[in-house]
Design a protein around this nucleic acid. Structure first.
Lengths: 334, 334
DNA sequence: CTGAAAGCGCTTACAG
DNA sequence: CTGAAAGCGCTTACAG
């Protein structure tokens, strides 16, 4: 690869002037032209590693996702890469549950990335706490950790769960079930919390045999719903804590010859694009995943610029989207 | 961030010895221990940018994807990140149709990545050709470019299309349609090629009004199928050049009250995980996406190690998976 | 506006 | 086995 010295020689100037011309320093118009021509002629591109050593910035953001097979994450990742790309940042991707998180944190120390966005944090690991103590730029999107000293972006999962409870109550459901993701995920916990509390407040608490917890997958939605429908008093409505589980529930209902929504109402969470497909036509809680991703990306860029600024918690509003997997009118208190 | 000098001071050795101890050079056991202890004490992690300047390697691979909303790509990306992670490589992601490709190529010149994997190439851009002339490490996965001088990994899309034609012919379909992705994609072209040639060979060429081309989306599958079903002589079978289009076709068939498979057979391509869900139960052509991704990743690592080795073309076998969206027996020549 | 020089944090021959 | 020194390719005060 050609270096700035090669360009300097060809343009008949010093290497320092080449650097200035290419990184926006003050250079005379004709010198700049000579340099740009020479750079193009030799195919020069500044070496980012060398630049980073001086500037201390690599213009690269780390993103940690788990479970790309849940379409919710590709949607987040899509928004994230587009936004960061437009901001002139590269994106380094880690795909992992658990320990891979720490690799991303270490990459901050190694100067491979300027900061990290976590989309699926489950708890504050020791390395994460250490990184925050050091004011390493870290942002949590989607899942959050209560009281953790860093910027966090999510939607109001408690209110979302509550809205579903209100909706089912207003439509006179008596036997209601909940199929939830793992309680290690704050999203699953919060949705359950809002949902179950509102039901309890209304004097119709969820019996434990109608609360099933498992992974955020179609498989689990299918098996859990099959179990519910083949029990003695099958529910008339089930709230699934994400859309993937709800799709599994829909498939299970069909397999058990339960008509949706006549025999069983099914509600999901996330409103991923597929939910609107006729094959599912799923009533679900919409959260603004793209907006959340962008807000998180911007929060990280801000954090990198001001490592010791007070940290912020952004909570976006969510709302119920009523479709064919339920038959009721929309809730009166939206 | 602490540097190797900080560690050296604490351990009472020279900076050079620290570097040796941490990058596998020969150091006495007790010196190594002192150094590792000191490194841990100050939280030292070698700076990757500085290391890269000496070694010329950043241990980072660029991956270019487009259309993360097609679950096929997250499946590829998942396999890719897991494989490269295990190989000690970071992954830099570009998400773009078209021009973003060139950013990835430039990143090779800038020393930000050691090589690039393209998953959705449509043609050989001038920068791509220039990069290959320079022996920049580049691998094409999934979509290919005929005759391009680089490693390419795909599955046999022509044979896949042919297998679908055989299957439909053996089950006596007379009116057959094809809904294809954009002809800029080699996959769409090859699947159509194998399919249409085999039909023509059998004396039943596809009439042009039953060949529809558009994007690889559910929307397009839906609208195209609606058009086909509301025409004068609706087809009895439709081959969609990916699963997403086929899902749209299934939804359209239901909307038009055409029973699948009694009135209409639908066949997809890719065999993404969702195809097996009861909601779709789609007959489709399986391609080993995970294996292809791993082969492509390894090919790139090999290429980086040997930039001027002869380039290789890997073509994996595909096979028809018969499910409920068709009713026939599996083809006699698998 | 331009150039000479220092330094970012490593690795790696080269001596000892 | 260990240390002194050079150099990877930039950016950026500091002079002029």
């Amino acid at each position: 690869m050609p270096t700035s010295y090669d360009v300097a020689r060809l343009a008949g100037v010093s290497q320092a002037t080449v650097s200035r011309a290419l990184s926006g320093g003050s250079v005379s118009a004709q010198t700049r032209k000579k340099i740009l021509d020479a750079a193009k002629a030799v195919g020069y591109v500044p070496n980012m590693g060398a630049r980073a050593m001086k500037t201390g910035r690599v213009n690269t953001i780390g993103v940690v996702v788990a479970d790309l097979r849940n379409p919710f994450y590709p949607e987040i990742l899509d928004a994230l890469t587009c936004y960061l790309d437009a901001a002139g940042q590269k994106v380094t991707l880690w795909n992992s549950d658990g320990p891979g998180n720490d690799a991303a944190l270490e990459a901050i120390n190694a100067g491979s990335v300027d900061g990290v966005i976590f989309t699926t944090v489950t708890e504050a690991s020791a390395p994460l706490r250490a990184a925050l103590r050091r004011h390493s730029p870290v942002v949590l999107i989607n899942r959050t950790v209560e009281g953790l000293g860093c910027d966090q972006v999510s939607s109001d999962n408690v209110a979302g769960g509550r809205a579903v409870a209100d909706y089912l109550l207003e439509n006179d459901h008596q036997r209601i079930a909940f199929i939830g993701g793992p309680s290690t995920a704050s999203t699953a916990r919060d949705r359950f919390l809002g949902f179950s509390q509102r039901l309890a407040d209304a004097g119709a608490p969820l019996p434990s045999e109608r609360v099933l917890e498992g992974p955020f997958t179609h498989d689990f939605g299918f098996s859990a719903t099959t179990r519910l429908l083949t029990a003695d008093h099958p529910p008339t409505a089930v709230f699934c804590s994400n859309d993937l589980i709800a799709f599994g529930a829909l498939d299970a209902a069909r397999a058990e010859r339960a008509v949706v929504p006549d025999d069983l109402w099914i509600v999901g969470y996330d409103d991923i694009a597929m939910s609107a497909w006729p094959a599912f036509d799923l009533t679900t809680v919409h959260q603004p995943s793209g907006t959340m991703a962008e807000a998180g990306a911007q929060a990280l860029l801000d954090r990198i610029a001001s490592p010791t600024a007070p940290y912020r918690t952004l909570t976006f509003r969510s709302h119920l989207v009523v479709r064919g997997s339920t038959a009721g009118t929309a809730p009166s208190t939206p």
